[in-house]
Simulated assay, not measured.
Amino acid sequence: MILEIASFQISTGNQIEFEAAFEVAQNILAGMPGYLGHELDRCIEDAGEYRLLVQWRSVEDHMQGFRESPRFAQWRALLSPFFAAPPSALHYERVFSSGK
């Protein structure tokens, strides 16, 4: 399992519309092969800053399976009108884990 962390900066005043669009876009994401789960978090200090955390089976499931699919274009069309800057995304693998 890998974790994709995508950062979105949303244009001022468009947060509610972005979240409504994400409600639709998340169904596209969830239907992809290799998808394991996701969460979208909004920054407390900067209401226009969001982090999308997506669990994928592999980097290839994200980069080839999703990003190179026609469904990515649909996903991007729903969300990109709200981006104040191009999003960034990186992939992580777990080194340590703890919790209750």
Rank of each mutant, 00 (worst) to 15 (best):
Q9C: 05
T12K: 08
G13R: 07
G13P: 11
N14C: 06
I16Q: 15
E17W: 10
E17A: 15
A20W: 01
A21G: 09
F22H: 11
F22T: 11
F22M: 12
E23A: 14
V24N: 06
V24K: 15
A25C: 12
N27Q: 14
I28Q: 03
L29H: 13
A30H: 08
A30F: 09
G31C: 10
G31A: 10
M32T: 07
G34T: 12
Y35E: 05
Y35I: 02
L36E: 13
G37F: 10
G37A: 12
H38D: 14
E39F: 08
D41R: 10
I44G: 08
E45H: 13
D46G: 08
E49H: 15
E49I: 06
Y50M: 09
Y50P: 15
Y50R: 02
Y50K: 06
R51P: 07
R51A: 12
L52D: 12
L53T: 05
V54C: 07
Q55E: 12
W56Y: 09
S58C: 02
E60K: 15
H62R: 14
H62F: 08
H62I: 08
M63A: 11
Q64C: 04
F66V: 01
S69G: 01
S69Y: 00
S69I: 01
P70M: 03
F72V: 02
A73S: 07
W75M: 02
W75D: 00
L78A: 03
S80Q: 08
P81S: 07
S88M: 01
